[in-house]
Design a protein around this nucleic acid. Structure first.
Lengths: 249, 249
DNA sequence: TAAGTCGGAATTATCATATAATTGGCATTC
DNA sequence: GAATGCCAATTATATGATAATTCCGACTTA
């Protein structure tokens, strides 16, 4: 196995993390309530359809007004986690209705990093989608798109020897730039989710930035620039393969 | 081209459509406000970062209390469409922050059906993801999963001669059941999005339910049941191909 | 006895008003 | 010119009241 030159995984305190696109839920009270309840639900503390405290009770529990509770409930409903009806109260919805690809919902996952099912799912879906996005990018990338991909690559090259945080950030941008260059709305939307998941889960891109990995990135950029769809597809698959290899080792 | 035996597209009034998993925004006032504002934003009536009416103004415009407006604003913020800060007011966020895969957001799209970019994106991403999901299903489907897929197939077979609505519904369920059988969280989450998009856009599965299409479905079910990943992958790809062929003809 | 009907009550939905917290921008100061 | 402090606009939260919804049980009826 390759040397583990860079791994940001252990370097940062997970609790301080926040998805880049997170809904403006910062110091606001209703934001805390949303995170708290959302976390409880994702932790499985309530079964779908089961009884759930009413607005009055939650108001007492969190020490905020019913107004604030209601705003939190509205947000959680918007994420598909709960539904609330008169006379019946608040109920947790079935998992299949949860907006699991929503960056906020992902960030409420109690321990994404340890969730093997999720990690494997993400790896599997990336192996499918990112090569397809690279292929599309090779067909449709504009000069602007190419510049964005190259900029991210150059930032990686510049950062790799000394700044692993900047390097991982540039890596995320590299993958996002390719998704954007695909000009496929679904891929672009998924880029945000994948990015959020990687950040939240701290296997940030799961790449260790050695020579092989850097070459793989360079190769992808070249294939896209040369308008070689099959080559781009294959190159991206190769990158994900060696990254997964590292991850499993 | 095959005969167009069934096409539900023209049969239903789009305005009456509602995604199955839509957030409980029905007769409720705040729900109407959410849909109205959401629709305006998706229609491009406001540019990102541009001025937006404040809570007071919206309250007047819609003839509801500020409380109701605020709940609507919270929902739209949760979908990533807007953000609202004291002293600055409400602003539309950049498109890349919109939760485009959220069924509600999709349903607010003013004319999804005519949006070729979206239609092509969806077809392209389905061609990538669904065969992969079928492959995974062939590897991991439980007896329960298989029963669900078969039930959907039988419902299709039963409905195909006389009830095109039920048939399309069963078809959606067939594809969803396979996504679920993949036991991949990302695929499962995407099933909801794809389903909502198909419903919202009215090229419901874009399949016309002739003999070829029914055989293609049957073949997928068989390959999954026989635990043949490559076969399942190929069979799903074939189905999407003949469906796309119809779509373009 | 079974099925349908109706009303009460619990809960959310909305409203109106008041007060607190936040922050962009202006004025002031050094 | 840069830093600091104040002001005002806007959202954030609180409070209390009323309306709308609908589950559930009681009652009626065949």
């Amino acid at each position: 196995m390759r040397n583990k030159l860079l791994s940001v995984a252990e370097a940062i305190d997970p609790s301080s993390q926040m998805t880049r696109t997170e809904t403006g839920a910062n110091g606001k009270m209703h934001g805390s309530v949303v995170r708290s309840i959302g976390g409880s639900i994702l932790a499985g503390e309530y079964r779908p359809g089961e009884a759930f405290p009413g607005e009055a009770e939650l108001s007492l529990k969190f020490g905020v007004s019913r107004t604030t509770i209601r705003e939190a409930v509205k947000v959680l409903s918007a994420k598909g986690l709960i539904e609330s009806r008169p006379r019946v109260g608040i109920r947790v919805r079935m998992q299949e209705d949860w907006r699991f690809l929503d960056p906020d919902v992902l960030s409420w996952h109690p321990n994404l990093r340890a969730d093997h099912q999720f990690r494997d799912s993400l790896v599997e879906s990336r192996r499918v989608m990112e090569p397809a996005a690279a292929r599309a990018a090779a067909q449709r990338a504009t000069a602007h798109d190419l510049a964005a991909i190259e900029a991210a690559f150059l930032a990686m090259e510049r950062a790799v020897p000394h700044d692993m945080l900047a390097c991982n950030e540039a890596d995320v941008q590299f993958h996002r730039a390719i998704m954007n260059a695909s000009h496929n709305i679904v891929f672009k939307a998924l880029a945000g989710t994948i990015e959020a998941a990687l950040r939240a889960a701290f296997f940030v891109t799961s790449e260790f930035m050695d020579t092989d990995v850097m070459n793989a990135h360079k190769h992808i950029l070249e294939r896209i620039r040369m308008r070689d769809p099959d080559g781009a597809h294959h190159a991206m698959l190769h990158l994900l393969d060696i990254a997964a290899e590292d991850l499993n080792a």
